[in-house]
Each structure stands twice: as structure tokens, then as C-alpha cells.
Computed example of a mutant assay.
Amino acid sequence: MTGFIIRKFIKDYENVKDINVRQSYGTVSSIVGILVNVLLSFSKITIGAIFNSISVMADGVNNLSDAGSSIISLVGFKMSGKPADKDHPFGHARIEYVTGLVLGIVILLVGIELIRSSLNKIMNPEKTMYSAAMIVVLVISIAAKFWLSGFYGKIANKISSATIKASSMDSRNDVVSTFVVLVSVIISKISGYEIDGYMGIVVALFILYSGVDILKDILNPILGEMPEYDFIQSIENKILGYEGIINIHDLVVHNYGPNRYFATVHAEVDAKEDILKLHDLIDNIERDFAKDLDINLVIHMDPVITDDDEINMLKCKTGEIIKSIDEKLTMHDFRVVKGDTHTNLIFDVLIPVDYAVQSSELVRIIENKIKKENETYYAVVTIDKNYVSTYMNNPYRK
């Protein structure tokens, strides 16, 4: 069914990097969500009102909020597809994150209101009537929500959408909450015990859990999360695959919405090579990234000396000292400046963003260890932070 809907309503559906195709995926998923949830909501609220079941009505209200969330997603996809303008030079794709945030907040508010209604039912109990129609509606709802969760999940993976992934998670939780309501209806019908209000609270708690889970997933890209390891590894491998690139470091990746990446990196090249040839190499890499990965990459070129035995020896020795302090540390941009009375060893040290040791203390430790090797060596250290999810960019890896 999912494949049929995609093929029927989305032109050029395989070209997911195209902004118009991606917007079509978002539009189709939102419309399907609206239709399914409105039908389920109408059925449950009607049945719940007829037979005086707060848990069934609560489940119906939850579906109504899902339909509202799909409307928000629809508007968000339309707005996020707007091209860049003078006030938003990186485009509007982050609006999709904002709509996901609104979706999570709406779900939390619905959960809180349903807890209030359920508590009122417990404190002021009214007899609930049960029927086969109620059970049939709940079973159909479970099947529909199970399919909708899979439908959302496939599209979310296809276009890397945090908002649609949130909808998939919400639908998955709805399957559980509706199943709980179904079980409560059957138990009450068989045993005669009135547990409707309590089951309403259980449903509301599932809704609140879903809302918190969605907010956590949405807030991460808004705040600026660490890029995935495989993604960073693919960038590093691609750059290092070009002949003439010795090593890379200081890779930083910025996310301006799903599949909207801007990146900067330092690339080490042989200082003996012709500068115009190296500049052409860098230009080619940047163009290839724009064409192949749709990443706006800016490369800073770092010329390094590779054929000086003394510099290579000092570089290797300094790298060993850094590793002896902590295996997580790496070094780059190593240079040597000799003087009459001392020699400056100039280099950068890369640390994790959550490194426990203060930068000033780390510099002091490095300076002292290098000084112990030779009194005439002075370390000039710059501390850099690692903003990507791998320590692969290590000049000393084999």
C-alpha cells in the first residue's frame, strides 16, 4: 500500500534530494495522516459518547490531536520548501524542526487534559456501557495505526525527516494505548469492574511519553547535535581519497535542515607542490561534494613539510607525548621554528567537546612533558575541539 501511494502521488519519487520531491513526500504523508486520524477520531469519539467511555473518547481525542499535528506538518513542509532569501540565506528547511517541536508540545497538552478528564471520571464514576461495536472500532484503529506507523517510518527513512519520524513514533505509541483501551473494555465487559477512568490515565501517560520522546528527538537538531559517525566517516574517506591530500582535521558540519549541510575542513597538502595545482585540487573537491553529496564544503589548505627528517622525528616524538597523556588526543598543524637558544614546536591539539581537563591545564601538562624531553624545546600549543562524532581524523593512524 505504501509503495502504491508513493508511486501514484509523487512524481520522480526516487529523486529524494530534490526539494520539490521531498516536499511532495511530506505533503502526501501529512494528507494520509489527516484522513486516517480524522476517521478514527470521529469513530471513537462517537462510540465513546454513545456508550459513556472516557478511555475510548480519550483515544479519539488523541487521534484528533494527531490529525492536527499532520496539518502542522503539512504547513511546515510547505514553508520549509521556500527558497533562500536575503533574510534567510541558508533557506527555510529548519522550519520542519519547529513544526516537530509544536507537534510535541500539542501532544503533551493533550495528554495533560486527558489525565484531568480521567481523574474526573474516577472521582465521579458513571456506568459505562460496552458493545461489540466499540470493540470492532478499537480493533480497526489498532490495525490502521500499525499501518500508519510503518507508512510514516518508511517515508521518514526515505527523506530523513525528523518530523515524520516523530509522527511514526506517535502512531506506534497509539497502537499500544489503543490496545490498552481494548483490553480494558474486554475486562470490564467480562468482570463488571469499572476501570474506564484508570485506563484513560494509562492512555494519557502513553501520550505524554510520546510527546516527551518527540521533543527530545526534535530538540537535538535544533540545539546542534553531533553528526552521525557513518556520515562523518563518508566525508573523511571521500576527501582522503583524492591524490594530494595527506590528511584532514578541524572538520565542522552545520545542519540547516534535513539534508542541508554546510561544512568546513582543513586539508594538509605537500608544501613542495605547486600552489596553483593544489588550489585546483581543492576547487575540484568542493565541486564534487556539492554535486555528489549536496554538501556546501569549504576547505582550508594547510601546507606541510614531508621530507625533512628532523621535523618528521620531532613530529613523531611530540605525537607520542600527546598520546601518552590521553589516547583521545590528536595533534595536527605541526611546525618547527628554530632559534639560537631554543626551538619552538608549534602545533594544535584536538580534544573532545566534553573533555574533563581544562584547556589551560592540558597545555601546561604538554609543555612540561616536552620540556622534560629537551630543555631547549618550547611548546606553542593551540587547543581545538572535536565537533564530529569520530576520532578518525588522526594524523598518526596507520
Rank of each mutant, 00 (worst) to 15 (best):
M1F: 14
K8F: 11
Y13R: 11
S24F: 04
T27V: 13
V28H: 02
S30V: 06
G33V: 07
G33S: 12
V36P: 04
V38S: 09
L39G: 02
L40K: 04
S43N: 06
T46W: 08
A49H: 13
N52M: 08
S55M: 09
A58P: 01
D59K: 09
D59C: 14
G60C: 11
L64H: 07
S65L: 02
G68H: 06
S69I: 01
I71Y: 05
I72Q: 07
S73I: 07
V75S: 05
F77T: 03
F77I: 04
F77D: 00
M79N: 03
A84R: 12
K86T: 14
F90L: 12
G91R: 06
H92Y: 04
E96W: 00
E96S: 09
E96L: 08
T99V: 15
I105K: 10
V106I: 15
N120A: 09
K121T: 01
P125R: 13
M129K: 14
S131Q: 04
A132V: 14
I135G: 05
V136H: 05
V139T: 11
V139C: 10
S141D: 13
A143N: 10
A144K: 08
G153C: 06
I155S: 00
K158F: 12
I159R: 00
S161K: 10
A166N: 05
R172F: 09
D174H: 07
D174P: 07
V176C: 08
T178P: 04
V181N: 03
V183H: 07
I187Q: 09
I187L: 15
S188T: 14
S188K: 07
G192Q: 11
I195A: 08
Y198W: 10
Y198F: 11
G200I: 01
I201T: 01
V203E: 04
A204T: 02
F206T: 04
K216C: 12
K216T: 12
L219K: 10
I222R: 13
L223V: 14
G224M: 12
E225P: 11
M226D: 09
P227Q: 11
Y229F: 14
Q233Y: 06
S234E: 13
N237L: 09
G241W: 13
Y242E: 13
G244M: 00
H249L: 12
D250I: 01
V253C: 13
P258L: 02
T264I: 10
V265D: 01
A267S: 03
D270Q: 11
A271Y: 06
K272C: 08
E273M: 15
D274E: 15
K277E: 06
N284V: 10
E286F: 10
R287G: 06
F289G: 02
A290R: 14
A290E: 13
D294V: 08
I295D: 05
N296D: 12
H300C: 07
M301P: 02
D302P: 04
D308H: 06
D309L: 12
D309C: 13
L314Q: 05
T318Q: 01
I321F: 00
K323F: 00
K323R: 14
S324N: 15
S324A: 13
D326P: 05
D326Y: 00
E327W: 09
V337H: 14
T341F: 15
T341M: 15
T343Y: 05
L345Q: 02
L345I: 03
D348P: 03
V357Y: 09
E361G: 10
I365Y: 00
K369I: 00
E373N: 11
T376F: 09
Y378Q: 10
Y378L: 08
V388P: 05
